[in-house]
Simulated scan of single mutants.
Amino acid sequence: MATSKKETSPMNETSPKKARKVNSGPIREKGRTMDKMVAAVGQVLQKEGYYGLNIASITKAAGVDRRLVSLYFGNVDNLIAIYLKKNDYWENAGKDDITAMLEQDNDVGQAAVTKLLQGQFDTVNNSEILQKLIHWELGENNKTLRELADSREESGQLILDRVEANFPKNGIDLKAVLALQIGGLYYLSLHANINGSTFCGIDTSKPEGKERISKAMESLIAMLYEKKK
């Protein structure tokens, strides 16, 4: 009787060693801790206002050791700056809209400009944090806030230059008109939500009041573009 050859089991074959995975646990944990510390800035801002923003109150709200501020962010001002940029309209949604407009080869139209201003009004009106940031910016000379304002101005300038370039020199100071509109939007949002009263008989904290302002804004932009023709 012939002796059969013994089959080689796959288990007996030498398989290449798998590359050892890098333990990403500490990296993920660091990221979660940093996110928690950034969020704590907002918690303190809502509860104590901007005068309460200091390393002790922020780390207490985050439930972390205060040494992590310098380890992860360098200093408390950098931590606050990250929170401010994360919650600023012109650094987020507004910046995305502006980028999309600038990528278009054609003229920035009436609808795009209207959408940008209406988006700003809606966002500020519905965000207590943004209202506090604007109030803080108006009431205190602060390096971090100034840098945020400069960054916001730089983003806005790009689209304003593009829009203005397509307007004829017909006596319309486009940037001045838009400055009045944007400043008015800020003030109406702060007035309604902080003071709690009407302005010119309009309560912009109510849906019908917001709708009136939004439609008026659309009409003003339409007038500008009609004048352009």
Rank of each mutant, 00 (worst) to 15 (best):
A56H: 13
V22S: 07
D105H: 14
I202A: 02
L220K: 08
Q46G: 14
N87C: 01
K143E: 15
V64G: 03
E147L: 14
E128V: 12
L190V: 07
Q118W: 05
Q118D: 14
G201Q: 09
L45R: 08
E91N: 05
L188P: 00
E226F: 12
L180K: 12
L68W: 07
K5W: 05
A62E: 08
M101I: 02
A111L: 11
G94I: 00
R20G: 05
A165C: 05
N87P: 00
D65W: 02
N87M: 01
L158S: 06
N75R: 11
K132Y: 06
S4K: 11
M34L: 09
N126A: 11
K95P: 00
L133K: 03
K175P: 00
I221Y: 06
I134D: 00
T198D: 11
M11A: 13
Q118F: 06
D77K: 15
K17L: 10
K6F: 09
A176T: 10
S189V: 01
A2D: 13
E208P: 05
E91I: 00
D122H: 14
G201H: 08
T3N: 12
R146I: 08
L53V: 07
M101F: 15
N54E: 11
L117E: 06
E153G: 02
L178V: 08
T198Q: 08
T3D: 09
Q120Y: 12
H135C: 02
Q118P: 05
G171C: 04
T14M: 10
L71F: 09
L188Q: 05
S70C: 08
T144Q: 13
N78L: 04
K215S: 14
H135S: 13
K95V: 00
K60V: 04
I194F: 11
Y83L: 03
E48R: 13
D88Q: 03
R162M: 04
A39H: 09
K60E: 13
K21M: 06
E147Y: 09
R212E: 11
G52F: 07
P10K: 10
A61N: 05
N166M: 07
K229M: 11
L138E: 10
V69M: 06
L158C: 02
V64S: 04
